[in-house]
């Protein structure tokens, strides 16, 4: 044992242990957040798009389906992702053929539809 302590093999062993411990110390404090952020953002955008297309999904349904929580207002927390969507409003709110009276036509056909809501946000966590 006394001979081993000063041998080249012992120095090799010490070096390997040193590298292993240092690497573990560095990486144990860090996990990649990208995939989490990307997945939460995608889920949030799907939720926003469904609602923008008048397919109603409530925050509680979102929670049931995904296990995550979505809020229409900004919230704090260790991992909260802001999802946003730009979605052009339906022309004259018509999803198929429609007939309008003059008042309704003047309201929607004399100016661009973006006077209505087109920007949607949600905070997923």
């Amino acid at each position: 044992m006394k001979g081993f302590a000063f041998s080249l093999s012992a120095i090799y062993a010490l070096t390997i242990v040193f590298i292993a411990i240092s690497a573990a110390a560095i990486f144990s404090s860090y996990t990649s957040p990208f995939w989490k952020i990307d997945n939460l953002r995608t889920l949030g955008r799907d939720y926003l798009k469904l609602n923008a297309e008048n397919i109603s999904v409530s925050p509680s349904q979102f929670h049931t389906l995904t296990g995550f929580t979505i809020s229409n207002t900004s919230v704090g927390g260790p991992l909260v992702v802001r999802a946003e969507l730009y979605y052009y409003p339906l022309l004259c709110n018509c999803s198929s053929s429609c007939t309008l009276n003059k008042t309704a036509a003047d309201n929607c056909l004399n100016s661009q539809e973006i006077k209505n809501k087109y920007h949607f946000e949600g905070w997923v966590h």
Binding site: L91, S97, C98, L100, N101, A105
Partner: peptide, 8 residues
């Protein structure tokens, strides 16, 4: 889009 308007 298929929009009709009745101007009355």
């Amino acid at each position: 889009a298929n929009i009709s308007v009745n101007c009355s």
